[in-house]
Amino acid sequence: MSEEHTTEARILEAAKKVFITRGMAGARMQDIANEAGINKALLHYYFRSKEKLFETIFREIAQRFIPRMTAIFESDLTLFEKIEVFSSEYIDNVMKNPYIPLFVLNELNKQPDTFVKQVWGDKKPNIEKVVAQINEEVARGNIKPVHPLHLLMNLLAMCVFPFVAKPMLQGVTGLTNEQFTMLMEQRKKEVPRFIIESIKK
C-alpha cells in the first residue's frame, strides 16, 4: 500500500471517529487532523473541506450499504423475514454511522436530484419483487390489505426516525448515549415485531 493511500485511509478513519463523536456540524478539520496525527495543511491537501471529506465517507458507506439493502428485498426470504433482516441490518449500520441520516436529509433538501444521482447513479434499488410479494400476501389473505409503499415507508421511517430525533429524545427523556444504544439494540426486534403484528391476520 502506498504512503499516499495509507495517509488517505488514516484520514477517513479519523474523520469517521470525529463525525460520530461530534456530529457533522460540530466536527472541525483541526479535530480530524489531530485524530489522524497529521497537520491541518496536509489534511487540506487530501480534502479541501469537511463537506468533501464527508461526501467521500458517505459514498463509501452507500456503496456497501445500499446494494445489501436491495439484495434483502430481492432475495427469496419470506416477507416477514425480509422485514426482520432489513430492520436489524439497517439499524445496525446506522448505529455504526449515526451521522448519516441527518446528512442524507440535509442533502435531499438542498439538492435532491443531484444527491439521488450521486448515490444511485443509473441503478436505483429494485423494489419490484418485494412490492409484488406484498401484493401476493394480501391477495392470498395472509396479511391485511396494505399498500406496499406504505408498508415500506413505515419500515424505513421506524428504523431511521430515532437517529434523526436523537437529540430531542435525549433532551426530553434524559437518555444517555449508552442507554440510547441499548434502546436501538432492542429496536432491531421491536420494529419488525410491531410491523408484522400490524399486518398479520
Rank of each mutant, 00 (worst) to 15 (best):
M29S: 12
E8L: 03
G23K: 09
S88F: 13
E13C: 10
F73D: 10
I38D: 09
Y46P: 03
L42F: 12
E35Q: 14
E60G: 11
L42Y: 15
I83M: 09
N93V: 00
K52I: 02
Q63R: 14
A62W: 15
Y99K: 07
K16G: 00
F65N: 06
Y45V: 01
G23A: 05
P98W: 03
L79Q: 14
L12G: 13
Q30G: 02
N97G: 08
M29I: 06
E3W: 09
Q30A: 04
E74G: 10
D76N: 12
F73A: 11
E3S: 06
K82M: 08
R28I: 01
D76A: 07
L42Q: 10
E13F: 10
E4M: 09
Y45N: 05
L12Y: 15
E8F: 02
N39M: 06
F80S: 05
T6Y: 14
Q63T: 06
L77G: 11
I61N: 15
Q30I: 03
I61T: 13
R59K: 11
N93P: 01
A71T: 10
R10W: 09
I100G: 02
P98V: 04
A62K: 10
G26L: 07
Q63E: 12
K16H: 05
I83P: 03
Y45A: 01
P67A: 00
T56Y: 14
D76C: 04
E8A: 04
A36R: 07
K40A: 00
L42V: 05
Y90E: 03
A71K: 15
N97S: 12
I100Q: 04
K40S: 01
Y99R: 07
A14K: 15
I100E: 04
F65Q: 04
A27R: 13
F19G: 00
A9C: 06
A71W: 02
T21C: 01
A15V: 01
E8S: 07
Q63A: 06
I38H: 13
I38Q: 07
I72G: 08
G37E: 09
L42M: 09
A36M: 01
S49Y: 13
E3I: 04
M95E: 06
A25N: 14
I32Y: 13
H44G: 03
F103W: 14
F19E: 00
G26F: 08
